[in-house]
Amino acid sequence: MACSNPPRGTYLTYIIQGLILLSAASSILAGEYFLGLSATVAFLLTMAPSLMTKNLRICFPWEINLLVAVSFYLHVMGHVGEFYVTLAPYYDKLTHLVSSVTVALLAFFLAVLADHQGEIRLTGPAIAVFILTATLAAGAVWEIYEFAVDQVFGTGLQLGNTDTMSDLIVDLAGGAIVAAFAAIALARGEEHRFIRLFAEQPSGAEPSEIVGDPIDPARSR
């Protein structure tokens, strides 16, 4: 089911995606083929949210799509612009914080949506744990990726145990920020408002198709 006309904020995502493609092209022209390939993969990954929901009755919030694009753009520019070196170690931690918040928001959105659709029933603490687990899992996968690339290509993405652990701590902090926000929103019973406020309604769909039937307020979280 097609989404409604995209809000103006969506075009910010397109701009960021264009900048990623520009970085890929400039890297290839400069003979930095590995960076060009990495930037191209990053661009494709920014399209994942839209592809995931293409045949569903929902659209990811444009804010989420923008955060995904910004997360990958920061990573790409960290290498192409050498910000990981010139702004070390702060730039690296910034990218991890933005990325972890993005993953955590995705986890929160998906958990609340699944709960509203009646596919699963999650308590507030369970959603908070899911957010933290998903964020840390994504961070661990990223560190494994960096380790594998270093071993295969002889690069220096990882700078030792301290760097890896500090990255994971920042990832945990990002997940904790969103988990705290989720706990407050759920405690106030604002999960329905969250979906109505941020989820774009597919064209021709009724609100009930997006958020499902209201949950009994008496149901304890």
Score class of each variant (00 low, 15 high):
M1Q: 10
M1D: 07
A2Y: 10
N5R: 15
N5V: 13
N5D: 06
P6W: 07
P6Y: 06
P7M: 06
R8N: 06
L12D: 01
T13W: 01
I20D: 01
L22G: 08
A25Y: 05
S26F: 05
S27P: 01
I28P: 06
L35P: 03
F43P: 00
F43W: 06
M47D: 06
A48I: 13
S50E: 12
S50Q: 13
S50A: 15
L51Y: 10
K54N: 07
N55A: 12
R57M: 09
V68R: 08
A69Y: 02
V70W: 01
S71L: 05
Y73A: 09
V76G: 04
G78I: 06
V80I: 08
V80S: 07
G81I: 04
T86K: 14
Y90M: 02
Y91A: 10
K93I: 09
V98Y: 02
S100W: 03
T102L: 08
T102R: 08
T102V: 11
T102N: 09
V103G: 04
V103W: 08
F108Q: 15
V112N: 09
L113N: 05
A114D: 14
Q117N: 11
Q117R: 15
R121K: 12
R121T: 13
L122Q: 11
G124E: 12
A126R: 12
V129S: 14
L132P: 11
L132K: 09
T135I: 05
A137N: 07
A138P: 01
A138S: 15
A140T: 15
E143K: 11
I144R: 04
I144G: 06
Y145W: 09
F147Q: 07
A148R: 03
V149W: 11
V152M: 13
G154F: 00
L157A: 07
T164P: 03
M165R: 11
I169S: 04
V170H: 00
D171K: 04
A179R: 05
A185I: 06
L186K: 06
L186A: 09
H192D: 15
H192A: 15
R193D: 15
L197S: 15
F198H: 07
S203T: 10
S203Q: 12
G204S: 02
G204C: 04
I210M: 08
I215T: 11
S220F: 13
R221I: 10
